[in-house]
Design a protein around this nucleic acid. Sequence first.
DNA 1: CGCGATACAGAGATGCGATATTTGTATCAA
DNA 2: TTGATACAAATATCGCATCTCTGTATCGCG
Lengths: 217, 217
Amino acid sequence: MTSTSAAAASSVSASALLAEILHSPDTDGIGIRILDAALAEYLDHGLRRTSVDDIARRAGIGRATIYRRFPNRDELLQAVLVREARRFFEDIAAATADLPTLAERLVEGFVVGLRTARQQPLLNRMLTIEPEASLPFLTIHGGPALAVVREFLVQQYLASPEAKAGNVRMNPEEVAEILVRLSISLVLTPETCLPLRTDEEVRATAQRYLAPLVLAR
Amino acid sequence: MTSTSAAAASSVSASALLAEILHSPDTDGIGIRILDAALAEYLDHGLRRTSVDDIARRAGIGRATIYRRFPNRDELLQAVLVREARRFFEDIAAATADLPTLAERLVEGFVVGLRTARQQPLLNRMLTIEPEASLPFLTIHGGPALAVVREFLVQQYLASPEAKAGNVRMNPEEVAEILVRLSISLVLTPETCLPLRTDEEVRATAQRYLAPLVLAR
DNA sequence: CGCGATACAGAGATGCGATATTTGTATCAA
DNA sequence: TTGATACAAATATCGCATCTCTGTATCGCG
């Protein structure tokens, strides 16, 4: 293994990567079984200690079959991460789809995003058992990840009826980035004096400190 | 070397650690030479690859002398970090001492804090050459560091004339934590869409997005 | 044709002694 | 109080052998 890197996406633009995540091609039954097995192995033994053989055995298929779907080990990991990211985005989108105002989308997106990220099994498992591999992609090499989530939120904001009506003064990119940075920070360093234990607390805190960002400038 | 850890401060309270930093005993000439030499060695070769011998040779003193001032290798590192932290706090305090309002202190503290952190030689050097050692103390084990800076900012806010007058509605701890989390995030992941290139841009951005926090709730 | 199984070379990881360095303490003379 | 030296124990480092894994090719099979 040379890189363990799954965020080699640094070169492509954030919006291109986001599009790839949101419209990732549906794989067939075997493809899903491979991704499921890979995810399970990653959770059990980490990225480092998971071999393609382990995944194949868990999926009950031949190792060659995996190489027929995925160019190499790293791209398989990439595919697993893309799927998790898509699920993450779908959760947020589902929770904010019916909200008309920008402020509501912002607050609820933060609530659901933070909760989902905090509960994300793979993310949290990697942070605890393989921080040396995962931390860099959320910090010093976190530009791409940050940009993708930011662009997704921008998309969500711009899709709101209020935004479509055209009376929005805030800069969606900038506000989104602030929210994403705070969320990442809270996932990486959960110890906080902010009331963020329950969803209700998160909502109230976001209401108080983040909702006003809609009016900035 | 067993820990490389300098943030073993997890057990002591943040305010106690802050007091230790702000009122760290002034060392004599030799003590300063040791700290200077240690800092220089850390910058040149990193924490991992610097031995007590290296530091002694650079300081032009005997190795035993170092052990007479500092219990062990780790506490020497600790002392260097405490001194850097004190300088960092002093920079912020000096820049905001004459500012009467809470909002001004908040904005200028952010401007100076971000600039100073971005330019901090040791911090940036460690993040680039030894991320595996430094990243955890700003992320998964970043609670203590976060709390110390937060408590310092709270102290700064409460020292403002406006706060002393008693008409402050905001929760200083919570607002401070948001600022610190954003600052750390920006240092760890400099890639941003926010206008934060020059001091003027940082000030304007803080004015727009952070100053309103004073009025929260 | 896609799958599972097998074989294979090259790369990379792992384990393990031997060696060298470093740590922390003690002791000495200046 | 300092610098120099000595010392044992703990770590780090290195070389080397071994093993595992990756990625590709090739087979027979349903």
